[in-house]
């Protein structure tokens, strides 16, 4: 099956403001891409366009075998198909508070994939083990630390076996002590060659896991290339000052 995310001349407006300007871009299978850029540059918007939480006005977006012409209304069927090929992890976790940890993880398999409960539970237990939370299966999200909640959210995303995993600042809401445990999980996933697109402000982490860096500014891609090239051999003054300013945070 085709395993790709492709943007062709994608433009997204918020009112008058162009949040993404004519973006051409392809994400490949097995690659970890980190998206960097100053606040308001369009990182979240780009990520949220992939699974159509935002609908751009122009261009085409392909996810796997689904291709969408954004100048026309998007059918529900295509929207759902795209969302089944992707999974998203949010800055604020967004776990379902009324469901226990295991129920959170298997919800998509039960409701969306219509899997039997027995199979879904088995899958859910394995994933919770993978993120180190086997002990917390019967807890409610409110009983967990932020880092634990985010690991549950990652397990929930993995449970859907998506082609692409999308992360929007997955550790920005966490204290530094808790950040590490989530980054560790992300690193493991990256090493398993999962296809991941990560928005983050953590440059050290980007440097460590990214195969590829995208640098956005004012809704445009200013840099798209290998990680080493971004950090070491970059002659773009804007990027150099960005790297410098981030290192003090």
């Amino acid at each position: 099956m085709l395993h790709i995310v492709k943007f062709q001349q994608v433009t997204k407006y918020f009112g008058q403001q162009e949040a993404l300007k004519n973006i051409d871009l392809t994400f490949h299978k097995g690659e970890t891409t980190v998206i960097l850029g100053p606040s308001g540059s369009g990182k979240s918007t780009l990520l949220r366009c992939i699974n159509l939480l935002e609908k751009p006005e122009k261009g085409t977006i392909s996810v796997g075998d689904i291709k969408i012409d954004l100048s026309k209304p998007v059918s529900k069927k295509d929207t759902l198909a795209i969302r089944q090929r992707t999974a998203m992890v949010f800055q604020s976790f967004n776990l379902f508070p009324h469901m226990k940890v295991l129920e959170n993880v298997i919800e998509g398999r039960l409701t969306v994939l219509k899997e039997t409960r027995i199979d879904a539970v088995e899958k859910g237990q394995l994933l919770l083990e993978k993120v180190g939370l086997s002990q917390k299966i019967d807890s409610y999200p409110a009983q967990l630390s932020g880092g634990q909640q985010q690991r549950v959210a990652i397990a929930r995303a993995l449970a859907m076996e998506p082609q692409f995993l999308l992360f929007d600042e997955p550790t920005s809401a966490l204290d530094p002590e808790l950040e590490g445990e989530v980054l560790k999980v992300l690193k493991d996933l990256s090493e398993e060659e999962k296809s991941m697109i990560i928005v983050t402000h953590n440059l050290n982490f980007a440097r460590e896991v990214a195969d590829r860096i995208l640098f956005l500014e004012h809704g445009e891609i200013v840099f798209d290339g290998a990680t080493a090239q971004f950090f070491e051999k970059n002659d773009n003054a804007r990027i150099q000052s960005f790297i410098q300013s981030m290192q003090f945070i």
């Binding site: 967004n94 409701t111 969306v112 859907m160």
Partner: peptide
């Protein structure tokens, strides 16, 4: 958003 992005 979390529910929709699961494909519900």
């Amino acid at each position: 958003e979390a529910a929709e992005s699961l494909g519900m």
